[in-house]
Design a protein around this nucleic acid. Sequence first.
DNA 1: GTTAGGTCCTCGTTTTATGA
DNA 2: TCATAAAACGAGGACCTAAC
Length: 591
Amino acid sequence: MSRDAGQATQQVQQVHKGSQARHELEVISSDDEHQGGAGPIQVEEPEEPFNPSLSGAFVQPMICRFEMCKREIVDGFGLCSPGRWTPAARERLMDAAQTGHARTVRNLLERFVREQLGDVKKFSFMLATGKILSSPFSEEALSGLRKSIAATLSGPAGALEVPERQPFYLYLLAQSLQILGDPDWAILTQGEECHANGMPLGHDKPLPRVPQVFRRRLKSRKLGETPFDPIMSNYVSAELSSEQLEAQFRKDAEQGMMIVRQTFSKWLRAADAKEVAFCIWGLVAEFIGYYLSYETFSAGLSPKRVKWVLEWIGNAEKNNWYVTGRGFSEFLGRLNFVARLLSWIRPFLAPLFAFNAVLRRGTVARLPAMAFISLCYVRDELKSSNGLQSVKQTWLAPRESFRTDAKCETGRVVLGGWSTKAGLGLDPDGESGWASTSAELLASLAALVAFGHLAQPIPGAQDCMQVFVCGETDNRSTPEVQRKGLSNKWPLFGIQMAASKALRKVNKRLMLNWRPREENTWADDLTNGDFHAFDPKRRVKLTFAMLPLGLRADLDASRAEFIQARATLVSLKTKEAAIGRREKEATKTAW
DNA sequence: GTTAGGTCCTCGTTTTATGA
DNA sequence: TCATAAAACGAGGACCTAAC
């Protein structure tokens, strides 16, 4: 059913952090809003939990997975919408009366559409290409259809009544939804405050919670701090009297249902502008700036945008890596936008963000080597991958492949790890003075090399899925950094880039989990030189040179220059005036 | 004691939609 | 044409907290 849009925007919004939903309750009252922000946290009495079975569908809704995150699918029709379940799971928990009613209404609608439109496929294409300028259904035909549906209900006469000042057949909808077991059918026609009689909009009285339709809102935008002005004469629309507003709504309704008109106008505007937000040509689609290829099961950047990024880097190189602040900022903003989908880019953004933070818009500066080494890698990878990334199913190893630990001492870092498939050890010496998180990530990289995870792709696996290798470490931060894919701490991001590059070669991903130190004693023993638990014959000897750290070494060599370049720009950077929309748009390059 | 995550705030980027 | 909204991501610094 179509839900109350006001409730959708005002009441509840699901917030995820990674794959986990937070459970604190933040109740935003109208008083809090007037005070310009979210108020104190209050905990309300426990409310009715969401009950998936009320959707009539079997087990749980479909889950969308991407990278390390998974979320329940949202189709825009509320939590109990059957559209959130696979077609095979829908209606499985409904009784005979419910499925019978759904089937009857579906058959009536299908027959009506076929009778009225004839060639439905042809009509669909005409609709998509903006050829349909008005509703194809006559009022007489619609009236006949409504009578047919009403005849299937317990109160056919009442179902066709239209409440005063309402364009919708609420009684018909309510009767039908009641049969279907919809959890909030009553809001349409039952009680003093219902859609048929009129509902408060939440100004003086908070809107009621509907836990079967919306999750509780956990986050709210801070409102402006300008003092409340009850006159608001600058808002011309607000000067309209209630009679005028009502007359306008009536006019809209008479022109053929407000919702339908909006849908048509959206299509028409898009068609007029010769561009469509979501446009499918064959098996390729563009959606909010991203490019989706259904043919290759991949997503990323359109060829045109890949060309733009490559040309930008190429031009910067031609100019001996001299860039303008404005141009670099725009480029980085777009690259960051790209990195939301092409996650392998994230580690390579770290030096770019650090440089951008100290660069004025009007300054022309030479990119430090660390920044252009990153850009060269991004360019090479974009070229070879055509800016696309597989969105095929991921396979998570059912258990961890290794456990590692790192010990930082003055003058040296000791890395140790063992394969959970066979007791093995490694102990390369490296540099010292590193942050423990860097050392721990390096230990994981060493384990990937020692235990053969970087040797070659799993035969055939890269054709149908991406494999996640799971490792465990007793450092709390390393898994977080790996999950986020980005850190600005050196040498952490250098190791992260190196690991990202090595894993990409074999089409694998690394997932690290935290294990408390007391449960990671064997790896800890290895870093302390205690090998009693392991068979010395199965020890894997690893030297620092065997680790795929070429990229990190290049970055390390340019580290001093990067710090110097950044320090120079910091001393030059002063507070910049906010850039106006007009100026920003005028200087923006198309891509 | 060290390190890094989390939070808060403002600013930057991207996208589309809407109303004056 | 312009301003605004929404949502996602990033940066910076200060502060608090958790884990090692």
